[in-house]
Amino acid sequence: MSTASLNIPLRRSAQRSTAEPALIRWTLVGVAVLFLALFLFLPLAAVFGQAFERGVGAYFAALRDPDAWSAIRLTLLTAGIVVPLNMVFGVAMAWAVAKFEFRGKSVLITLIDLPFAVSPVISGLIYVLLFGLQGWFGPWLLEHNIRIMYAVPAIVLATAFVTCPLVARELIPLMQAQGTEEEEAAVVLGARGWQTFFRVTLPNIKWGLLYGVILCNARAMGEFGAVSVVSGHIRGLTNTMTLHVEILYNEYNFVGAFAVASLLTFLALVTLGAKSLVGWKPGRRADKSSAEAAQDNPPAPPEAGVRAGTA
């Protein structure tokens, strides 16, 4: 078999004259695919493979388990609180950072990434130090009979900590690229604060915001380390889906564990799908690129018909 027939087409950037021989190309693709298979595709397949190992019936039975259900409910509740809060935070932070100049702005932007630099276990630890029995507020909380640690509030807090930069990090570069001209035009025309935001800014950032929310949601539901520290691990009460997966796995209930895991995996795949969709969305591309397109100089006489759009 001649190497010439191993036809792996090249993309626009590599011309014929400067391309690698087909053998090299074939090898590289092979290596890449093998690497990804080992580390990416196999785990993905394993989740679903193990979940359905005993058949579809066992799969759904595992999901119907009451403890699994309360784990799902708790996860949904946590995400339901954390995601909207972090969304508002992200929008507020992005608005302040992208539309205004102030001292310490670059420090603030760097600070936002703090939760990413912190190990999940430490993210939980800090709340234990605040609200645990030996924590700062521990005795006071005990006195007033308020349960934060090892209960839902702590789970919510730890999850909020870990996921709070996500929406902000998605919006800040987007809003910075869009600039402030449209908002300035709006206020000159008489629009007040909320009007400007809802009528002018929000439509321009909607895809970035949507993706940020989807990502935040996926990470909130999938958080493990931080929640493991602050949860009481009480079956049916303070276990999120990930914690429940851990418990089932340690009990060798593989079908159960992977069944719940498959739900989370499905959510991850949906998130990846959303990312691709949003990435190809003409609106989103146009959001970023029309910020530069405003500098363009499309020559056309005033009476000419409409030109084709660049959307």
């Binding site: 990416l40 999938g222 991850a268």
Partner: peptide, 17 residues
């Protein structure tokens, strides 16, 4: 698109898989 999987997949799920 799948390259981002480790980013989106819960760590516990990755662990058991």
């Amino acid at each position: 698109a799948l390259v981002d999987l480790p980013f989106a997949l819960p760590t516990a799920v990755a662990g058991i898989a």
